[in-house]
Each structure stands twice: as structure tokens, then as C-alpha cells.
Amino acid sequence: MKMMQQISWDDFEKVELRIGTIVDAMKFPDARRPAYKLKVDFGELGIKTSSAQITKHYTLSGLIGRQIIGVINFPKKQIGKFMSEFLVTGFADENGDIVLSAVERKVPNGSKLV
């Protein structure tokens, strides 16, 4: 098992892990690996876009209205002709397919993980 590097509390506080609700999801045929384009409402922080390689476990229609956790303070990243504005978080299952990280109960969009 690889040793984890410890971080300080100040390091953790720099990461903006926020909750948002998926308001739109569409296919991303230009992606190298199967992915969706997502539009997520982060409340006062606005609607942000990202891509996510989550096609194994999720359908487009099943994503709408779902709350997810995103890292919103990474620099924007160009993915082909698409600009990603945040990182969708999740965990790999036993096959390496991504399962979205989410909250147990609905919370206000834009809430920060504390």
C-alpha cells in the first residue's frame, strides 16, 4: 500500500468541495473515452459545466436533478472543443467505472464540505 502524504488543515481548506444539482446532461461524442457533458447549478456560485466519464452507471435522464459534489476552484480545463469549469468527484468501482460522490440528503446548492 502506498503511503499517503499528509496535508495540513490549511491545505484542506483551500479545496472548494461544493454541492450542486445537475440541471442538464448530454452526450459527449468528441471525448476520447465515453463521457457526458454536465451543467450543474452551484447556487450563488452559478451554473458550471464539466465532463464526466460516468456512462456505465448513469443515464442522461437519470442524472437530471441529482446532487453531486464538485471541486470548483481548479483552473478551467480545455477538453477538445469543450471547457470544463469544475471537477466532478466520484469513486472507481471494482471494474474501474466511476460512481458519483453525493450527499445523503438534499442540501442547498453551493454548500461547502466542512
Results as ranks from 00 to 15, higher is better:
70 G>K: 02
71 V>C: 00
66 R>G: 00
23 V>M: 11
53 Q>E: 10
106 K>T: 01
101 S>Q: 04
68 I>M: 03
33 R>H: 13
75 P>F: 09
23 V>L: 07
114 V>H: 11
88 V>Y: 04
2 K>S: 13
102 A>V: 06
23 V>S: 08
45 L>V: 05
103 V>Y: 10
85 E>K: 10
34 P>C: 04
7 I>W: 14
70 G>Q: 06
60 L>E: 07
35 A>P: 06
10 D>H: 12
37 K>S: 11
2 K>C: 08
12 F>E: 01
61 S>V: 07
104 E>A: 06
24 D>Q: 05
82 F>D: 03
35 A>S: 10
75 P>I: 09
47 I>H: 08
62 G>V: 07
32 R>Y: 14
69 I>T: 00
95 N>H: 04
48 K>C: 04
59 T>I: 12
79 I>N: 06
34 P>G: 05
97 D>S: 05
28 F>P: 08
67 Q>N: 10
106 K>D: 12
34 P>I: 05
58 Y>P: 14
52 A>W: 08
98 I>S: 03
31 A>H: 03
83 M>D: 05
11 D>M: 12
33 R>N: 13
78 Q>E: 07
18 R>G: 02
35 A>H: 07
37 K>H: 06
53 Q>Y: 04
1 M>E: 13
29 P>T: 12
52 A>F: 00
73 N>F: 13
105 R>N: 08
96 G>N: 00
45 L>T: 08
97 D>A: 11
8 S>Q: 12
64 I>E: 10
56 K>R: 15
36 Y>C: 10
72 I>K: 09
29 P>L: 10
12 F>L: 13
74 F>V: 00
31 A>L: 13
81 K>F: 08
46 G>F: 12
55 T>L: 09
18 R>A: 03
110 G>V: 02
61 S>E: 12
76 K>I: 07
108 P>V: 03
108 P>H: 09
91 F>S: 15
60 L>D: 04
99 V>S: 12
60 L>T: 11
42 F>M: 08
105 R>Q: 14
97 D>G: 06
20 G>I: 04
86 F>R: 03
35 A>T: 10
6 Q>N: 11
39 K>S: 14
92 A>E: 13
75 P>S: 06
59 T>D: 13
31 A>T: 15
